[in-house]
Nucleic acid binder design. Structure first.
Length: 569
RNA sequence: CGCGGGGUGGAGCAGUCUGGUAGCUCGUCAGGCUCAUAACCUGAAGGUCACGUGGUUCAAAUCCCGUCCCCGCAACCA
């Protein structure tokens, strides 16, 4: 029997600067947790991510940094890679959208769309900056708002009075890139994807997702359909991107949002090309019935993944794999406001990892994931959760059990006695809780899943408190052996259940118990079997503290330090 | 009347689709325990579920209507 194939993708982080905790919780981390969980379930998982590199934003960033855009992307790709490794993200492949592979797939898809009549040409008017020698996107034009007088209004919208603007409305319009006011309106020809022609097919497909997708994902998609789709421009007057493969358009490139989602496929091909004899990207993308495809993204990405990308694939007439389940996440806010890459507000992933171990962040972010609505980050809340859940409940349980065992029975799984009624009750309760936790993980209900995980830990402390082994050991050593033996087995249980969320901590726990740490499998057996697996006399190591508390002083210091904007990169 | 999401004890959230005595975690207070990282366990206080003392109903946090507030998006920003 072949294992079920699971294709898992995280929205591709934009290359410009490093991601912040909002990006981490919005797509990168939940996709990693799910990928790890599914691997432990025995599924054949392919987990794909990469950097999204094309477009004006990276051109501008490179210009500011004073390096060629290719070099800028090369450097930042490596920085992204390091950060994700620091967070223990277990991508099977972290690729890029600017590769030959992605170009090949992009051309294949765009050619098909042209052949099938889903592409049309239109001439539009756009602002051209003479000094920059390029067309400017509306948001790269700054000027004074004609309505409120705000002098930094953007060509698409005034951030001060929120009025939607046309760049020609601006007074003293200038290029955001160079500051030049030498702007003129020019005509330019572009390609548009005829979404209108694909509307009914899209609608039919989306309707099948109504009761399975998260509210935030389905409602956003539905909103776009209900408003009626319009042709969407898929080319740009830029240099950095894939040149359009159509005569007369050689000086233009595909729009970043056209080739970015195609990047999932291009990156899969990058992965496949590294070991062509063992891997075949087509098995994952062109055999829809063999694969279950799950996408993770923040809500801002939803329209592109529910409307434009599926429409793009449908329009080819080929049998591309479309997303089966879309996990759309809301936003994490920072002290009530929003994280901002452009404003450098919030905590960025490279900073986060310098402050605390990855598992602290991973646990907190998943326990507070913005699933049904936005959720907010504060250092106070962060410290509360880490101190209570990880340090006091989980960490202390492991420490008290191993120390008590060591002082009474030596550093090994104690011998003596047999499980009794209280153990039976524990098995029953844990079977139930582990079942809940597993279901929530399968359903990607992460907050609820972590609630169950925490309950499981608490159940460990409960069992100890109820049975008072420190008293029992003085009168009935066999009984104490049973209690502690069961508790040590629970540490193994906790390690396995925590592995998708906190891989480092899980590994440490298993190492404490002298158990293998690779290729872990999920709990299959019932607790009556699972909690009696460790052999009598199996040696464990001297316990070390897995977590340490975050002091109020530290919280205050961090709150002050991160209130200010980040100085530079 | 642009669109979507949200407004539930001090904080963070679940419950709303499928009406039926308001639930979880943290915090607070009290008690227990003393093996363990002053950790663990138990119990209690605290909410008329944004507002209209609106409509439907035997019954509304839940359905309907109206208003206010917060967050995000608004198709040339990733």
């Amino acid at each position: 029997m072949n294992k079920q194939k699971y294709l898992i993708t995280s929205a591709l982080p934009y290359i410009n600067g490093l991601p912040h905790l909002g990006h981490m919780v919005g797509c990168l981390l939940p996709s990693d947790v799910y990928a790890r969980f599914m691997r432990m379930q025995g599924a054949d998982v392919l987990y794909i991510c990469g950097t999204d590199e094309h477009g004006t934003a990276s051109e501008v960033a490179a210009l500011k940094a004073g390096v060629p855009v290719q070099q800028y992307c090369d450097e930042f790709h490596e920085k992204h890679k390091k950060t994700y490794a620091d967070f223990n993200l277990s991508f099977d492949y972290l690729g890029r959208t600017s590769t030959e592979q992605n170009k090949e797939i992009t051309y294949r898809i765009s050619s098909k769309l042209m052949e099938n009549g889903y592409i049309e040409e239109k001439t539009i008017k756009q602002i051209f900056s003479v000094d920059d020698n390029q067309f400017l996107a509306d948001r790269y034009i700054t000027g004074t708002c004609p309505y409120c007088g705000y002098d930094k209004a953007r060509g698409d919208q005034c951030e001060n009075c929120t009025k939607v603007l046309d760049p020609t409305d601006l007074i003293n319009a200038r290029s955001t890139i160079s500051g030049s006011t030498n702007l003129e309106v020019r005509e330019t020809k572009h390609l548009f994807l005829k979404l209108t022609a694909l509307q009914s097919e899209l609608k039919k497909w989306l309707e099948t997702k109504e009761f399975t997708w998260p509210e935030v994902a389905y409602s956003i998609a539905q909103k776009w359909l209900n408003e009626g789709l319009q042709p969407r421009c898929i080319t740009r007057d830029l240099k950095w991107g894939f040149p359009v493969n159509k005569p007369g358009f050689e000086n233009k490139v595909f729009y970043v949002w056209f080739d970015a989602p195609i990047g999932y496929i291009g990156i899969t091909k990058q992965w496949s090309d590294e070991k062509p004899t063992e891997r075949n990207w087509e098995d994952w993308w062109l055999k829809p019935d063999d694969v279950h495809y799950v996408e993770f993204m923040g809500k801002d990405n939803v329209p592109y993944h529910t409307i434009t990308f599926p429409a793009t694939l449908m329009g080819t007439g080929e049998n591309w794999k479309l997303v089966d389940y879309l996990k759309g996440m809301s936003y994490l806010t920072f002290n009530g406001g929003k994280f901002s890459k452009s404003e450098q507000i919030g905590i960025f992933c490279d900073q986060a990892i310098e402050e605390f171990p990855a598992d602290y962040w991973r646990y907190w972010l998943m326990a507070n994931a913005p699933e049904s609505s936005d959720s907010s980050f504060t250092f106070e809340g962060f410290a509360n959760t880490i101190n209570k859940d990880l340090n006091d409940v989980l960490g202390n349980f492991i420490n008290r059990v191993l120390k008590m065992t060591t002082s009474n029975f030596g550093q090994q799984v104690p011998d003596g006695g047999v499980a009794g009624d209280d153990e039976e009750a524990l098995y029953t309760r844990l079977d139930e809780l582990v079942g809940d936790y597993t279901s929530y993980m399968k359903e990607m209900e992460f907050r609820k899943a972590l609630g169950s995980l925490r309950e499981i830990w608490v159940e460990g402390n409960n069992y100890i408190a109820r049975n008072e082994p420190w008293k029992v050991v003085k009168v009935d050593k066999d009984r104490a052996a049973v209690i502690l033996r069961t508790a040590i087995n629970m540490i193994r249980l906790f390690a396995i259940l925590s592995a998708p969320i906190m891989p480092d901590t899980s590994k440490k726990m298993l190492q404490l118990l002298n158990l293998p740490t690779d290729n872990l499998l999920w709990v299959g057996a019932s607790m009556s079997e699972f909690l009696t697996l460790l052999e009598i006399g199996h040696a464990f190591n001297t316990p070390e503290l897995l977590f340490s508390k975050i002091t109020p002083e530290r919280v205050e210091e961090l709150s002050i330090r991160y209130k200010e904007k980040k100085e530079n990169e």
